[in-house]
């Protein structure tokens, strides 16, 4: 339906941000993302727009949850 990838915000100028993922950089628009990301945040990019700021803590927690629960045998 919609291909989108997480990329790291490197620079912000008004409504534009430079985002990077493993050495690939691209300028994207920030018109649609709320809350506005800061440099260092990961955002989900679709068709040249940031759509979502990734909550780093929550992502870590979620992975940890599954790793732990799986080690205990579900």
């Amino acid at each position: 339906m919609c291909l989108a990838v997480p990329m790291e915000v490197k620079k912000i100028t008004d409504n534009w941000a430079v985002v990077e993922y493993e050495g690939t950089r691209r300028e994207v628009r920030l018109d649609l993302v709320d809350p506005k990301p800061e440099v260092g945040d990961y955002v989900i990019i679709h068709a040249g727009f940031a759509l979502h700021r990734i909550d780093e803590e929550e992502a870590k927690e979620n992975l940890k949850y599954w790793k732990e629960i799986l080690n205990k045998d579900i």
Binding site: A4, L32, D34
Partner: peptide, 16 residues
């Protein structure tokens, strides 16, 4: 997919 979405979605994008 908690890292990429939420129950309320993105009101700013919906507004646009």
């Amino acid at each position: 997919y908690k890292r990429g979405s939420s129950a309320i979605g993105n009101p700013k994008a919906l507004n646009v």
